[in-house]
Write a protein that binds this DNA or RNA. Structure first.
Lengths: 231, 231
DNA sequence: GAATGCGTATGACATATTTCATAAAATCAA
DNA sequence: TTGATTTTATGAAATATGTCATACGCATTC
């Protein structure tokens, strides 16, 4: 973890329109002044469940997993997050402590703005407040919707669903490098590592995907979709 | 469904502190003027997924289930909600249509305030906006946390978890009348009706609970807790 | 280079869960 | 009240999933 040497001004940030587009120049300056950009290497812990919440965080670059560790020490991944996502927005306004842990899956740049600054802006700019609510609403819906989709499928459908998610929503292409291990994939869709591996092998034998380690290529989109829909 | 004949003023509502405590008298009046209280009988649909969102809704009395119907026509219950809960707060600020359906499990009183009134107040009162964010954050966390707890357990643990939830968080007592059928309980914890029934029969045989139809009495809290914790 | 740990892989077996069949009890509508 | 429908109930068989054992390749460390 280190501070970025190449800090971009929020005004020129591609994610500006997600949140900050309705701020005045003076307000922008407040955000910028209170902001740091931090770089995390692959595997580094960005947020630890239970940490005090002092900052508002969002992803500028990279990929992370958001997870919780249960009382038996087993991790469960709630979601994979990509640039533009706000990685602690859901907890910020009702909890003092982080409710989920977050780890970088690849080199990840996180923008951090003091929570007190954000709250000050919220109080003074209702358009900004409405935008923050919009993002909260959107994020909550996304997570709940995904858990809903996962919970009604069985293993093959779950693996197919996640492969489609990675291909269609993260990488926007049919071939990609898996950002997580098979174990983590299992933690994401609530199944064992062995079954996750087995199911992927089966997809390969059936000609639905091709694999070489972490490199995945989806060959038969139609059948992948069918397996995904059939549960 | 009918309008309440006995409308209470928000100022005297027991749930006032959840949301409205920081409104001025003039603002209160706006809420009151834009508000209707609607009574739904057991089984009546309060919100249908896909409906246009025009109102901000919350439960004053009763019990509801929030659910989604999947592409195969099977319902999945996301949560059981009780008085004081805001039953569409999560979707309100990012979607035009309801994302979930809601049905009354018993006679239920719903307060409905025009969304335009709420937004108007949000724009003029930042303390109110922060409180709404607080509630959104809290609701999202609750749902996600519960799905997390369910997903890491197997059938016995899931049933035990829900019995504890009903006993400890809804009825605050060891004996209660189940507000949902066994099929609905299954829809809530992602398992079949038969297994739900079987598991409850097993709990009875083991002396953990006693049952007579929908009447449930938890006899051995210690063992229920143990089953709940062991997955 | 050997030893270690981790991720991927696969088979065999044990267990969990669903499915299908059937039936009694409870609920609801006419 | 009757008759129809839903809910609760249980068993047996089929299927899905988890567990345990083992192996191999690869990177890291000593």
């Amino acid at each position: 973890m280190k501070l970025s040497k190449n800090i971009i001004n929020c005004k020129s940030c591609v994610y500006r329109n997600l949140l900050y587009e309705m701020l005045s120049s003076a307000e922008y300056e407040k955000v910028n002044a209170s902001r740091t950009e931090i770089i995390f290497g692959r595997g580094e812990l960005i947020i630890n469940e239970g940490d005090e919440i002092n900052d508002f965080l969002y992803l500028r670059k990279g990929l992370v997993k958001m997870f919780k560790t249960n009382s038996h020490g087993k991790d469960h991944i709630l979601s994979i997050n990509k640039p533009g996502d706000f990685i602690n927005l859901l907890s910020i306004f009702s909890k003092d402590e982080q409710q989920y842990s977050v780890t970088a899956l690849e080199e990840t740049h996180v923008c951090s703005v003091k929570l007190s600054t954000i709250i000050e802006l919220l109080k003074g700019n209702s358009e900004f407040a409405l935008r923050v609510m919009n993002r909260m609403s959107y994020i909550a819906d996304e997570i709940i919707q995904k858990r809903f989709e996962i919970s009604q499928r069985q293993v093959k459908g779950r693996v197919a669903y996640m492969l489609r998610f990675l291909s269609e929503q993260i990488y926007h292409r049919g071939d990609f490098r898996m950002p997580i291990t098979r174990r983590e994939l299992g933690e994401l869709i609530s199944m064992t590592t062995e079954n996750t591996i087995r199911t992927m092998s089966e997809f390969r034998k059936d000609g639905i995907i091709d694999m070489d380690g972490k490199n995945i290529q989806i060959i038969d989109f139609g059948r992948l979709r069918k397996v995904c829909e059939m549960g």
